[in-house]
């Protein structure tokens, strides 16, 4: 019993360290500028300024940043779910020449850090005329070696008897993939979806490099340039930071179970 109290004590100290920055972000975001630089600081805002959030929308086109981020995230995620699961089906179920070689080639992409491909991609997308368009934000992010690997591993675990029965019923491979494999692979698909959503929403270096006009800005780039502009107005900055991260916090709270199952399944945040 006594040892349980100690465990709680240690865990609570850790939890406080985790939560205080969030608390401080929200608390500051509701203060007036004067109150935010007051010494000693107030713990809670004396008169909550919800107008700070309106001010964020007035000083930058945050609404547009939301739309851009949403389109980038949705485009990448839907495409990855479809394209990666198709490839995974082939590697799990079909017999074709050079299957292993192609699979290993795809896996080798996992080793290449993003920064290495950044500059040649910038040149390539310039060539395509895609720089500063949604094509640059979405298309290269539609393909994921990690997604193929994760789904292939999961598909291998689905009993083959299921598709053999379907084959006898005259199903094509597309039919087996669509009607047998996909419905049976929901946990893995949800895991991949959550990873892709999270990484696209929070992505920074890629959109920073591949877009330059204000109308193409996503949230991460938006708040970073916001910081450059209002570097000392911390209530405004904290409101912007909180606004940009709210959707992911909400998603996390609702999809916690899936997210944690997914991490245990897929291994890592990529």
């Amino acid at each position: 019993m006594k040892s349980k109290i100690w465990i709680h004590l240690v865990l609570i100290v850790g939890a406080v360290v985790m939560v205080v920055p969030f608390f401080w972000m929200i608390s500051t975001s509701l203060k007036t500028y004067v109150e935010s630089v007051q010494i000693p600081p107030t713990i809670m805002p004396s008169d909550p300024q919800f107008s700070n959030y309106l001010a964020v929308f007035e000083s930058a086109d945050f609404f547009l940043y939301y739309i851009n981020t949403f389109l980038m995230t949705a485009g990448r995620t839907l495409a990855q779910l479809l394209l990666c699961s198709m490839a995974a089906y082939a590697f799990a179920r079909l017999v074709f020449p050079f299957k292993n070689t192609i699979f290993i080639l795809i896996l080798s992409v996992l080793m290449v850090p993003m920064q290495v491909i950044l500059i040649p991609n910038y040149a390539l997308l310039t060539e395509f005329g895609w720089v500063d368009t949604f094509y640059a934000l979405i298309v290269p992010g539609m393909f994921s070696a990690f997604g193929v690997f994760l789904l292939r591993q999961f598909f291998m675990g689905i009993p083959k008897e299921l598709d053999e029965a379907a084959l006898i019923d005259g199903c094509s491979h597309w039919g087996i993939y669509w009607r047998i494999i996909l419905p049976n692979a929901k946990p893995a698909l949800v895991a991949l979806a959550i990873f892709t959503i999270l990484n696209s929403w929070n992505d920074f270096l890629w959109p920073l490099v591949m877009t330059n006009s204000e109308s193409m800005r996503v949230l991460s780039v938006g708040i970073a340039s916001f910081q450059g502009q209002y570097s000392t107005d911390f209530p405004l900055l904290m409101a912007a930071a909180f606004l940009s991260t709210i959707p992911m916090l909400i998603m996390f709270i609702f999809l916690q179970k899936h997210l944690i199952a997914g991490i245990s399944l897929g291994g890592v945040r990529r």
Partner: peptide
């Protein structure tokens, strides 16, 4: 039959990864 299906299923991802990941890695 599998060959045709394999091209259909793997083709898009492989083409994408080749264009935006493998080729750029070599180019870099």
């Amino acid at each position: 039959d599998h060959r045709l299906w394999a091209v259909l299923f793997v083709g898009p991802v492989f083409l994408g990864l080749f264009t935006f990941y493998m080729m750029p890695a070599l180019a870099s």
